[in-house]
Structures are given as C-alpha cells and as structure tokens.
Simulated scan of single mutants.
Amino acid sequence: MQGFDVGARLRQLRNARGLSQRELAKRAGVTNSTISLVEQNSVSPSVSSLKKILDALPVSISAFFAGDELSQPRPFYPADELTEIGDGHLSWRLVAARRPDRSMSIIHERYPPGADTGEEMLEHEGEEGGVVISGTVEITVNGEAAVLGAGDAYYFDSRLPHRFRNVGETECVIVSANTPPTFSDGGQELHHA
C-alpha cells in the first residue's frame, strides 16, 4: 500500500457525505480520536477496523483503494495492476477491483510474521475459500481454530465470525476467493463485537 494516503481518502469520503468526525465515529462504533488519528495517518487501522469505518459511510474496501471509476472487463491482470486493499502491514491484492458487475473476489494475500486481520472477528455475507501457498496461518472460524500450512485449504460460510493470523516465523501467502464479493465490495457486512 506504499504511497496510498489512507487518511486523505477517508477525509475526502467523509466530507463528500457531509459527516463530521464525531458523526462517522458514532455510526462506526469507534471513538472520535480513532477517526482523527486515521485521517492524520497517525495510526494504520487493522483490516477489521477500517472495514467497520467504511461500512458506516458506506463504501466498499475496493472502492476505497481503487477509486470509484469502473474499467472495461478483460481477461488478464498483471501483478502491478492488482489493487491493494490491505492495512499496510498485511497485503491483500484484489484481482479486477474496477471490473463492473464482478460476482466474486479473488485476493492474493500476504501476512508477515505476527500479522492478523485484527482483534475483531470478521463477518460478512457469502462464502470464502483459499489455499495456503507458503508459510503457516492460524484461521479461527466460529470459535474453532486450525493452523494451516502450504497446500492446506479452507472453505467456510463468511457469516461465521472469522480471523486470520500468521503464527509462523516466515511470511504466509494465500490465494483466496469469496462470493458474492461482499467483503471487498460492501453490502450487508456485520462485525462481531
């Protein structure tokens, strides 16, 4: 996410909707200082925290990072054209972020040692699955945890509370998909308190 100004983009979207920091904080269920610190780029929010704030706008994670313009559908996407939707620590690169009427999300995920999706469990409509390419990751789904390594896979109902955490010594790489693309595209996402 090098060079992307998270604070300026959040401020732009908040102002475009005529919301004060206080009002956005109230809608998102976070403190006023959280919004202020994110807008000043003083803190880098976790994926789950940023998702909670964006859901209150509402704006999707892919629109937040990709901008609102759509592109023509095409079959191939070079690595440097994948849209970064991670939190600056972990990397989630979304395939075809600007494609109109996209009915699934395919994400190339990279978790450095110790990285996780945040203290809050994620919950959103749909199903998701993936394959661990390298490293290890602990995935918790609805209270059940497993550590997966290269070649291992997962598939679950995304409405169940879930979290990903790299518990290994090396970077973990996953290629995942979810449908419908509710996590990256907004919708009826819920957050587990």
Rank of each mutant, 00 (worst) to 15 (best):
M1V: 08
M1K: 07
M1R: 10
F4V: 13
V6F: 04
R9F: 01
L10C: 05
L10P: 09
L13P: 15
R14D: 15
N15H: 12
A16N: 10
A16H: 09
G18D: 11
S20P: 09
S20D: 06
Q21R: 06
E23M: 11
K26S: 13
R27A: 03
A28H: 13
G29F: 15
G29M: 08
G29V: 10
V30D: 09
T31C: 03
S33G: 09
T34K: 02
I35F: 06
S42T: 01
V43E: 14
S46N: 09
V47H: 01
S48E: 10
S49M: 14
L50Q: 05
L50E: 07
L50S: 07
I53R: 05
A56H: 07
P58F: 01
V59F: 00
S60R: 02
F64H: 06
F65L: 11
G67Q: 03
D68A: 04
D68L: 13
S71K: 07
Q72R: 06
P78H: 11
A79Y: 02
E81Y: 05
L82P: 02
L82I: 02
T83P: 10
E84P: 01
E84I: 00
E84K: 02
I85T: 01
I85H: 02
R93A: 10
R93K: 15
V95W: 13
A96D: 06
R99T: 01
D101N: 07
S103A: 03
S105P: 09
I106V: 15
I106S: 00
Y111M: 07
A115S: 11
T117S: 15
E119S: 06
E120A: 14
E120S: 14
E125I: 08
G130C: 12
V131Y: 00
V132S: 04
I133Y: 00
I133A: 09
S134H: 06
S134N: 11
G135E: 03
T136A: 08
E138D: 03
E138V: 05
I139V: 15
N142H: 09
G143N: 06
E144Q: 10
A146T: 03
A146S: 11
L148I: 14
A150S: 15
F156G: 12
S158D: 09
L160R: 07
F164W: 10
F164T: 13
E171H: 08
V173C: 05
I174M: 13
S176T: 10
A177E: 06
T179M: 07
P180D: 08
T182P: 00
F183V: 06
F183K: 05
G187K: 10
Q188R: 05
A193L: 13
